[in-house]
């Protein structure tokens, strides 16, 4: 299986471990990722809050770049925000007038036959859980994981096409295929406040506190995520939350690709796990992971 790969800005910087683990896992599973050459930022939330036309043109530019790479039919984006923007653009371009404007801006045709997938879709839908189970060499037996989706992996359903957007179970099925226990909890689609990470940090601290508190209440050993912005908040803000609210959270937050990597027998260091802000060393040592 060969896919066009759109890492997005975060995966080249603050979420570099998501990029590393995604590439490693795909290599092990025989999925070939071809990074889009000279991709540009999808615009993320600043674009859709400021400039409607550019918020479509930027993702469209990236979709157009895929066409230059041969006959790839699918783009996979690990970042939930990139995924959402690419998908919104693809949908909006069904409008002929908008398509004409956007193609004038990007200076080329934008193909309409390229599908946009989140990395999780690639794993559970394209590859299938059976193929993964076969390759698990180190079961995550005994780990209790709260799977966190946040907003854009499932919402709005008109864009993502997900029917169970209030209570998704896609990541849970993957975590269970790896041998771990996926917990039932309330906050799996509650927003962490990512859009305000830098501008209104007090909002982020409050919302993230609620999510961590619920995960702790159901007895989660760790949280699994599929978005660099969710990870930055849940993993990176725990110290600030503890200081502000007098709590004592210390919950490792993993990208689902990192957990897959561990189950596939890849060493934690090779997956970039030690780059997390909330330490994972003890968690891994207790469970005898290298």
């Amino acid at each position: 299986m060969k896919l066009a790969y759109y890492p997005g800005c975060s995966l080249h910087s603050s979420a570099v471990e998501y990029d590393i683990s995604t590439r490693k896992v795909c290599e092990t599973l025989g999925i070939e990722l071809a990074e889009i050459k000279d991709w540009v930022c999808c615009g993320s939330s600043p674009a859709h809050q400021k400039d409607e036309l550019m918020s479509i043109a930027l993702p469209a530019k990236n979709i157009a770049l895929v066409r230059e790479m041969g006959d790839l039919k699918e783009i996979c984006a690990p970042c939930a925000s990139c995924y959402s923007r690419l998908k919104v653009a693809k949908q909006k371009l069904a409008d002929d007038n908008l398509r004409k404007d956007v193609e004038t801006i990007i200076g080329s045709k934008c193909p309409d036959d390229i599908e946009v997938l989140h990395m999780l879709d690639v794993i559970t839908d394209r590859l299938g859980l059976e193929a993964i189970k076969e390759k698990v060499v180190r079961s995550l037996d005994g780990m209790k994981i709260a799977c966190y989706y946040g907003c854009l992996m499932t919402r709005p359903p008109k864009v993502t096409g997900k029917t169970n957007f209030e209570n998704p179970t896609q990541m849970e099925s993957l975590i269970e295929a790896l041998g771990a226990e996926a917990l039932d909890w309330n906050m799996k689609t509650f927003c962490c406040g990512a859009a305000f990470a830098l501008t209104k940090t007090e909002v982020v601290l409050e919302l993230t506190r609620k999510i961590l508190a619920d995960a702790a209440a159901v007895g989660a050993d760790a949280i699994a995520v599929g978005c660099p912005l969710c990870h930055a908040n849940l993993d990176g803000r725990q110290t600030q939350i503890n200081r502000k609210f007098g709590t004592n959270f210390h919950i490792p937050v993993f990208y689902f690709t990192e957990l897959m990597g561990l189950a596939l027998g890849i060493r934690a260091g090779e997956l970039g796990i030690f780059k997390h802000i909330t330490e994972t060393e003890d968690f891994l040592k207790e469970r005898a992971f290298k």
């Binding site: 800005c9 930022c41 400021k50």
Partner: peptide, 16 residues
């Protein structure tokens, strides 16, 4: 928003 859009206008990608 303004900073972000200016940045990607000149650099193509966001520089955190």
């Amino acid at each position: 928003n303004r900073l972000w859009m200016t940045m990607i206008k000149f650099m193509g990608r966001a520089y955190e």
